[in-house]
């Protein structure tokens, strides 16, 4: 029993097809609301945590403990005048933030959220090829960044986009190879290793313990995907102003900003699903979602700590790192995975 069936059950007077369509729509809407809430919470939490790390107080004026600060900032961004640079490439300029945000929301729909009491499984989409789908969607988001950088008619944005591309191609190959190792190891116990639910359910031992190298590569890739320090060369506010988003303001900038924090959360969710067993834990069938959230939030805190304490890596050094260290490591990881499977440990 999952949440989709329950909603469909409520809508059943509409007939089979319509009720399923309605249920999917409502679930997607819930996922959207979840994503936006998570992002808003992330921003608030990030600011409070950053303040705590830096001996400051952080937002404390709007609402109790400043909880409404994010809302106030959002309202401010909405009210701002949209400024369009001269000589922009109009269509890519306007759709770039939408691509980034849409990619984020789509990815939120596919993540396996595990169970919560009578709601059952909270997962929106039960796809048999979920893992491929989610990384295909993740590959859409850089297109938004590149559109933004190239269409802005700004040299900083252009350089930022070039850096983003160089960064993306140097971490995505090792990332996909480490995912391949996950699929290999999952295929031992399940006939559908591309299904994210199955990947979660076969993790009697979390894959992060079996494949620490893979976890390392994937975590670094997720930092680079979300592009925060130390791998924020695309934005690099002290070098390229804000890189590809230099010419954006108001709500469009807000979408990029939400994309950044959403990607941090998404990356943490993926690490927890693929390497830490997602929602598995004691009383999995009733509070799996809580386990999943706890794991994710721990990873988010680790990510933010990394963000706050690291300087930026130079782009050429990161590209070197990606191709000369991460790529061989991911191959070694594949070999180790093969040995684990043959040795029957998994």
């Amino acid at each position: 029993m999952n949440i989709l069936n329950r909603i469909q059950g409520i809508l059943s007077p509409l007939g089979h097809d319509l009720s399923f369509a309605g249920a999917y729509l409502i679930e997607t809407l819930i996922a959207l609301i979840f994503a936006v809430t998570v992002v808003a919470g992330m921003v608030y939490f990030f600011r409070k945590y950053m303040a705590r790390v830096q001996n400051r107080i952080g937002p404390n004026r709007v609402g109790k403990f400043g909880v409404l600060q994010v809302m106030a900032d959002g309202l401010k961004l909405m009210q701002k005048e949209s400024i369009f640079p001269d000589g922009r490439d109009d269509l890519p300029y306007k759709i770039a933030p939408i691509i980034v945000f849409l990619g984020l929301i789509l990815a939120f729909i596919i993540v396996p959220y595990s169970n919560l009491y009578w709601f059952g499984s909270l997962t929106v989409t039960h796809s048999n090829v979920g893992i491929i789908l989610i990384f295909a969607i993740l590959a859409i988001m850089p297109i938004g960044e590149i559109f933004a950088g190239i269409s802005s008619n700004n040299k900083y944005a252009m350089l930022g986009a070039l850096r983003a591309v160089a960064k993306d191609i140097s971490f995505e190959v090792p990332m996909m190879l480490s995912i391949l190792a996950i699929i290999m190891i999952a295929s031992v116990n399940t006939s559908q290793p591309l299904n994210l639910q199955n990947i979660v359910s076969v993790q009697n031992i979390p894959f992060g313990i079996l494949e620490p190298i893979g976890l390392f590569i994937f975590f670094i890739s997720m930092i680079a995907r979300a592009s925060y320090s130390p791998f924020d060369m695309g934005e690099s506010d002290s070098e390229l102003v804000t890189g590809d988003t230099t010419e954006y303001g108001g709500l469009r900038f807000g979408l990029f900003y939400m994309g950044l924090f959403g990607t941090i959360f998404l990356g943490s969710m993926l690490v927890s699903v693929l390497y830490l067993g997602g929602g598995s834990g004691p009383y999995e069938s009733s509070i799996g979602f809580i386990w999943f959230l706890i794991k994710t939030i721990v990873l988010v805190v680790i990510s933010l700590t990394v963000w706050l304490s690291m300087p930026r890596v130079r782009i050429d050094k990161f590209v070197n790192f990606g191709w000369k260290i991460l790529l061989p490591l991911s191959f070694i990881n594949l070999v180790i995975t093969g040995i684990i499977i043959l040795g029957g440990i998994a």
Binding site: S229, D232, S238, L308
Partner: peptide
Amino acid sequence: YGLDLGMLTPFFYVFD
């Protein structure tokens, strides 16, 4: 200098 290199946190420590 930390900010130049992308480090946020030491800035606040030294100002403290």
